[in-house]
């Protein structure tokens, strides 16, 4: 951590800051310049709120050098973390594919989709049972009954299953059915939920909040990991920008940046990222080219009749075509699919 003083900081002000830093057990490297004094602060600065020092008289700026997240950080663990979900892996050479409908609508619907997805080699089935809809009047999901159908559909087709949990009360019931729990974008900073997910022992698919910085996403991952659950997959799903043509702007640069900052696997969600069906495949191809460790896509046999997010959901034949294209791109970036 670096403390920069104002040009007119008095000896007394500098002395006060020195005392406070020494009291907290830090070592100082002072550097008195011709106009400004700068302190290099050495020690466990992760625990410090830099604002505590910024408000002190005479202080111009406090700059953190080390990241505020530790367990999620690449400097904490050099090698890539590989998260296993059923027969799929995320973070290794092989790219993991997650696909399925936005919502589980009926037993027949999820079974039919699972069977179709199996043909293209998809190993993880998605399906929402608790839906965080923008409107309280929109379809809210089938709840636990939906999870039961999802599990059945997964088992019949040798696929692992993932579904979103919105409330910490739903975690225990969900554990009976799912192989991975998804934290939705709207819940990325639901710290009570994240803490509970840290106590369980199945992978967590953590989606980036639509207005969250990458640092905030990594801090959310840190919450889960601090509880002891280190199986976290990070997911870029589009952020809010000034552009309104697409539903969100898929931040593909998040992939290489997160992979540099963290050892956790990084996947993208092009369906939510753009929100328009015919733009989903190009963004999926770009994600794999950018080095994503996996993709999560919304697929339905009849998107126009889907209960939610139909406009961004791929037809099964579009998905099959996309998988073929992704295999070619994957080999170009030394990956497999």
């Amino acid at each position: 951590m670096i403390v920069v003083f104002n040009e007119n900081a008095t000896a007394k002000q500098i002395q006060k800051v020195t005392e406070k830093l020494l009291d907290k057990g830090f070592d100082l490297h002072r550097s008195t310049g011709s106009s400004q004094v700068v302190f290099g602060v050495v020690g466990d600065t992760l625990r410090v709120d830099t604002r505590d020092f910024e408000v002190l008289d005479g202080v111009h700026e406090v700059i953190r050098i080390s990241e505020p997240y530790k367990l999620a950080s690449r400097s904490f663990k050099k090698e890539d973390t590989i998260v296993k979900v059923g027969k799929a892996t995320f973070g290794g050479k092989k790219i993991g594919m997650i696909a399925g409908p936005c919502s589980i609508e009926s037993r027949d619907q999820i079974k039919k989709i699972a069977k179709m997805l199996k043909k293209s080699g998809t190993k993880v089935l998605r399906g929402g049972a608790y839906k965080p809809r923008t409107s309280p009047y929109a379809f809210q999901g089938m709840g636990e009954e939906g999870l039961k159908y999802l599990r059945e559909a997964g088992d019949m087709n040798d696929m692992a299953v993932v579904s979103e949990v919105m409330d910490r009360m739903d975690i225990i019931p969900a554990l009976k059915y799912v192989d991975m729990i998804q934290v939705g974008a709207r819940n990325m900073q639901n710290f009570a939920l994240l803490k509970e997910l840290g106590k369980i022992n199945i992978p967590i698919l953590l989606k980036r909040g639509m207005s969250a910085t990458l640092q905030e996403l990594l801090m959310a991952a840190e919450y889960i990991m601090a509880g002891g659950n280190h199986q976290v997959i990070l997911c870029e799903r589009g952020i809010r920008t000034f552009e309104t043509y697409t539903r969100n702007t898929l931040d593909i640069s998040a992939v290489p940046v997160l992979q540099q900052l963290s050892h956790l696997p990084v996947i993208t969600d092009p369906s939510h990222g753009v929100g328009i069906r015919d733009k989903v495949a190009p963004m999926a191809r770009a994600s794999v080219a950018a080095g994503a460790d996996g993709l999560i896509l919304e697929v339905h046999y009849d998107p126009d009749k889907a209960f939610s997010d139909g406009a961004q959901t791929l037809y099964v034949n579009q998905y099959e075509q996309l998988v073929k294209e992704l295999k070619i791109i994957a080999s170009a970036v030394n990956r497999t699919l």
Binding site: R30, S31, T32
Partner: peptide, 20 residues
């Protein structure tokens, strides 16, 4: 004299660290 101060700052910083 500024250079002398900077050099002694380091010596004192390291001394304080040693004392701690």
């Amino acid at each position: 004299v500024d250079a002398i101060v900077r050099i002694f700052e380091r010596i004192i910083d390291e001394s304080r660290r040693l004392e701690r």
